[in-house]
Every structure is written in structure tokens, then in C-alpha cells.
Design a protein around this nucleic acid. Sequence first.
DNA 1: ATCGTTCAATCATCACTTTGTTGGATTATG
DNA 2: CATAATCCAACAAAGTGATGATTGAACGAT
Lengths: 197, 197
Amino acid sequence: MERSVQKKENRRVRYTRLALRESLLAQLQKAPLNKITVTKVCEMADVNRSTFYLYYKDVYDLMEKIENELYEELMELIGTSHAVLPGPDLLRRVYEVIYINRDLARVVFGKFGDKEFMKKVSNIYRDQALHEWKRVLGNTDEATLAYLHTFITYTNIGVVERWILTDFQETPEQLAKLTYRLLQNGVSAFINKPLGR
Amino acid sequence: MERSVQKKENRRVRYTRLALRESLLAQLQKAPLNKITVTKVCEMADVNRSTFYLYYKDVYDLMEKIENELYEELMELIGTSHAVLPGPDLLRRVYEVIYINRDLARVVFGKFGDKEFMKKVSNIYRDQALHEWKRVLGNTDEATLAYLHTFITYTNIGVVERWILTDFQETPEQLAKLTYRLLQNGVSAFINKPLGR
DNA sequence: ATCGTTCAATCATCACTTTGTTGGATTATG
DNA sequence: CATAATCCAACAAAGTGATGATTGAACGAT
């Protein structure tokens, strides 16, 4: 019985953190982050404001911490991939994690969510895949590679955002296939004719 | 001589608006919008705070107004297009507008910029092109069309963001070609095999 | 178990800044 | 000159950080 990472955080501490977290997420359903004050979050959470500052710098900091939990989970999945493109299998697993956390995802990626976050997630690929790209695409110049990465990232972001927006109509499996097809076709544009500035 | 929209704004009014606008943009170079207060904007602009509230609700409102100027300009270009894809020619003209306004664009799309804005711009296509898509793609279901639109939007966003981030290395012409190639190839994925949920 | 003891976690209160709003004085424009 | 635009200053209300005091969970001794 020794989940090493799990620290022996006080029941108090865990409750406080959870209360603040839930309060923020609840309020994000009604208002954008910039309209949500530390005071209001603490009121709803029934936690003293000074306690809030003990853990977080401001509401943005709190939001970041919440996001990071999802991020870490996705990181573990993606971090091991070394392909040119995220394969349909990896995509499916990523989408499954998002689906499982869909209550959180709706808020994080939703109308009032942080648009930067998804980009950060997609960037996990970058370093993993960079040298693999070079191998396949030959001596393509840096600028082309950069646009390739951008293309992969944003196709992913767009698909996922719409998926969430339309309330997860497709299965992770179906969405993975769709994304992969988009990526394959887009990338072929690079392979056949590099940017050649 | 009757530019109907142009109202007969006072020289004073125009100056006040400009001062506030420049002040905000200046501060956005150093801090995100949520750290910028009305008070500070007015100080730097040397405009009384009550005057600020005469024109804008808060800093977010001011930012929105600034963005809308760029938006209107792009709107005029894009609003007349009816093709399945934004053609290389239209893309070039759009990129040229962005290039001309690159000082503003850097801030709007930059590190502390509003990520929603670009999406809004890209959405101008949507309504224009929707029925054209149906014509070309046959009786494709709504979901597939939605993803098609998302794909077009985000490819565009990604390319432009990177373009700005890397300080406008390519010419609008070159960038238009690149984007068009990406879009063409991606869309072909839809044409050949619709989503078929 | 029950009791202290200890120390982290939480709270109550402070001084300060920002926010909207208002009424009236001042200034610039047409 | 008339008046629209701006400034001034004063206000209550709200939000912010930081302080030192208070509480309660964990633990060893009884």
C-alpha cells in the first residue's frame, strides 16, 4: 500500500483543493475566466480567500493547474510516439482520454476555455516526431517542417474542438479515422512539393 | 463627399480613441490582457478614466473594438467569395491585408492575443461557401461538412499564426500557395470518402 | 483509547487598489 | 458663441495581497 506519488495530503487539503476546483469549473459554465474573481470562487467553495492564495496565484493559475492534470494524462500517452504522423491508434487513445474526461474537456475547450491549452497538448508530438519527419521527407528545410507541424497541430485542434462542441457525436474510433485521413492527405502535399521559399 | 459611415467625429474624439488604443496595444507587448487595468491604460494615454468609460465598457471591450477594425477590412475581401475553397488569389489578398497591418496583427495574434479572433475571421467563409460545398461534394451529411469547415478554418489559422510568429518570412503570395496546397489535399480526403458515421 | 503537543492548514482582518458612476467645472470645435 | 467632449474629484462597492491569530489532524506517551 504505497502509491508513492500520492503524498499523504491531508483530507482537509484535498477537500479545499477540490472545492476550489469544482467552484471554478462550475462558474466557467456561465462566464469567461476573465469575469471570474478569486472572491467569488472562494465564496461558492466556502473557502477562505487567504487559503486560496496559499495554493494559487489567481484564477488563471488555478485553471492552469486543472488543465495540467489532463495534460499529464495525455502526455503519458503521446510522449512515447515516434512516427511521422500520430497513427490512428494513438489518436484513438488520446480521444478516449478526452472522452472519459469529457466534463472537464467541455469546459477547458468550450466557449470560455483556454485556446492555448490544446496547442500545448499537440506540441507534445513535435519533439518526438521531428527527426522522423526529416528522415521521411529528406532534407526538407526548417520552414517547411515548421508548417508541417503547424498543420498537424491545428488539424487536430480543429477536429477535437468541433467534436466537443457537437457533444461527442462520433466515437473516438471514428474521429481518429477522420483525423488520420486529413493528416495523411495534407502531409502528402509536403512530400510531393516542399515549400521551396 | 459623403463617406456615410465616417460620421463627423471630432478631432478630439478621434485623438482620445487613438490614444487609448495605442496605450492598450503598447501594454499588450509586455503583459496579457487580463493584467492590464483601465486605470493604467488611461494613465499612459493621458486620458481621464471617466472618458474611457464613455467609450468602452472595459479593456476587453476596447480590445474587441480594435480587432473589429481589422475584421471589417478582411470581411470586405472575403465576404464576396463563393468557392468551395478560398482560392490562392483570395488567400493572397487576405494575407496582404494582414501583412499591411502587421504591427496590429502581431499583437492580436501574438502571445497575448485573442485566439478566438482568427476563428471569427475564418468563419466568414462558412456561410458563403456552404451551399457550394454541397454542390461539389454531393449529398454529404452535415457532420462531414462541419468537419470540412473546421479543417479549412484551422489550417488557415495555423498557417497565419506561424507566419506571424516567425516574423513574416514568406511573402503573402508564397503563403497563399502553401495554404492552398494544404487545403486542396485535405479536402480531397472528404471528396473521396465521406465520413459515413 | 485518551490525552497533550506540535505544526500545517485555515481563517479574520488589515491597508491598499481598482472599478463604475455621478455632478459640475473646463476646454476645444464647428 | 453654443455645445459637445473632456476633465476633475469624490463616492461606495468590490477585489486584492499580506498579516498574525486560530483551528484541527497526526502522533507519541501514558
